[in-house]
Design a protein around this nucleic acid. Structure first.
Lengths: 345, 345
DNA sequence: CTGAAAGCGCTAACAC
DNA sequence: GTGTTAGCGCTTTCAG
């Protein structure tokens, strides 16, 4: 019998086979495996043995259907290629794995339309909860979700409405500290490459920057503030704009990691020396920050911890869906290195 | 606010409500929505209208249970924080999204134990297929999966056994080209920071390097070959080892992106000039490659395309599970920049 | 062509 | 404490 495709499927066994092999009812098997009801220890043993012998894995679709909720968490990330979010995901994954949840991954690509579509799909998957970086364009939909019993947790950006837990960092303070660092170093003309207007993160970083400048009695020159898109190409263009000014800045704060990469490109293209000719402070401390010459001064955000925290918040809420919404603000840390012109490493 | 619109939903509606509202049986609703049987056009219209009105989304758990396969693909990645895999994932996601599949994400962290666990979970989720970067320690398990009807596709690394499609790049040739580039530039003592022994990728890159050296009648000095772990810290240590040699290399090829970052750190620490004192060629062309000073010469791998290809291969196989296994080898491109000491940019 | 009905594998009443 | 049984929402025979 070697002719055709050997589809001698070692068939997946169901709870029924386990019950049969261990000589109990399927209800008992379910109780043993679910572990939420007392069962005679001897039976427990027999069931577990039978399950192991058959390599039994409960069918999650059946379980989800019956329980009306799955052991799955949806995650909607706005840009999977951004290392910041990548660390967030790893944090989420770690917690969910330990809690035996699966992770349904979606990439919204910052597109509200796509976000809505994903939200909708996740709903039809009966996910237990969703962790997302909200575009804040789908509030109505989110509300529906919450009303129908799906828990949401927002990451990084603050959602418009009070209907989910949220974990962020104190962007305003971080930006204030980063900009102040530049001021203390004696720079007078400090530029900002800001993010898009929509997300709360870029707004807050702008505010922190502005506060630092004004607090120190420096002028807030609109020419020195360029709005961009959180992407590398955008950062490149923005830096060029700044450098092209008849009176260019002595130092620049850049509002995220990808734009920093673009900014660096523009600076190198003109053979400008960092920090002598142009000092830099970035947002997000990435693996490559210390591999740059000179190493980059940057605001380190606890991306991994944001992920774990979000997952924990969600799991927690799953066990107590009625508790009031929480907002957790994690600390950032300014990693002072040489790109800002600081003396100490 | 008395009228129901698709957007205002209190409760999830099931196929039953759609049937009721449109005055047909649930079987007909299923046929209309599934689109695989002829239904009276007029009824089709009524059903679609009702579905839209109710904001109906078929319950995927129920469907999976009944069909014994879900509209879900599992993806097991060895290191989510590596930008290379991150691009792969985006490629996969793009294709799957268009095909209306969901993506169940798993991080194996290069750990065979964890890989097995994920494989097992994915099985109990009834996933239609799995895309993975295999550790090659779970062949028996993979075979079981295939036998029970789950399609697998390997990415990047070549699996031990002939039981799945695979998409890779020609690592041997890429490494050969990269090393040859260094030879042509006139370097005599060329070092290699190699990856771990297990994955086929690092083995092949080593072979390509060796071939290039030997082909050009240069000695293959074992001192100049350091094995590491594909991680940043490992690359840092490896580069230090190389630099500490009484007779250090003039040029180094580094076998992946993260180790390159580590190597750069070690070089900067000693204030060595690139490429004058030490020339560099890396693997994987990352966003930061052009932001470095000098820009990094590197082998660009089509990570995104590898992802789309893998997903397409899988989808294709899902429609024809009996077709023979395919191996797709994508082209890489050596991006010549200044870190290798080349003249042209 | 359309409807009735039988499960897919699992959990949770409800009996005993 | 354990077994029996009724569905969860969906797809797919099988009749008509």
């Amino acid at each position: 019998m070697a002719t055709k495709t050997g589809k001698s499927s070692e068939k997946k066994s169901s709870i029924f086979e386990v019950a049969e092999l261990s000589g109990v009812s399927i209800a008992t098997v379910s109780r043993v495996l679910g572990g939420k009801a007392y069962v005679n220890p001897e039976l427990v043993l027999r069931v577990k043995k039978a399950a192991a012998e058959l390599g039994y894995r409960p069918n999650r679709s059946a379980s989800s259907l019956r329980m009306r909720v799955s052991k799955t968490i949806g995650v909607i990330i706005s840009d999977i290629e951004n290392p910041f979010f990548t660390s967030v995901i790893r944090g989420i994954e770690k917690i969910l794995y330990d809690a035996e949840y699966s992770l349904l991954f979606c990439n919204s690509n910052e597109d509200p339309e796509r976000e809505r579509s994903h939200l909708s799909i996740l709903r039809s998957e009966d996910v237990a909860g969703i962790i997302l970086t909200p575009t804040n364009q789908n509030s109505a939909f989110c509300r529906d979700l919450v009303n129908s019993g799906t828990q949401l947790v927002a990451i990084d950006r603050i959602p418009e409405m009070e209907l989910m837990d949220v974990v962020t960092t104190n962007n305003r303070k971080s930006a204030f500290d980063a900009a102040s660092h530049l001021v203390e170093l004696g720079y007078q003309r400090i530029g900002l490459i800001a993010g898009p207007k929509q997300p709360s993160t870029s707004r807050e970083r702008f505010e922190g920057f502005r506060d630092a400048v004004l607090t120190n009695n420096l002028p807030l020159d609109p020419d020195l503030i360029v709005y961009s898109d959180f992407r590398q190409a955008g950062g490149y263009q923005a830096m060029k704009t700044l450098l092209d000014l008849k009176n260019p800045p002595e130092a620049v704060m850049i509002s995220n990691n990808l734009m920093t990469l673009g900014g660096l490109q523009a600076i190198h293209e003109r053979n400008l020396h960092i920090p002598d000719q142009i000092a830099l402070v970035g947002f997000d401390d990435m693996p490559w920050a210390t591999s740059l010459q000179p190493p980059l001064t940057a605001v380190a955000q606890p991306a991994f911890d944001m992920g774990t925290t979000a997952a924990e918040l969600l799991l927690d809420r799953l066990t107590d869906p009625t508790r009031s919404y929480r907002k957790v603000e994690l600390d950032t840390k300014l990693m002072v290195r040489t790109s800002s012109g600081a003396k100490s490493a």
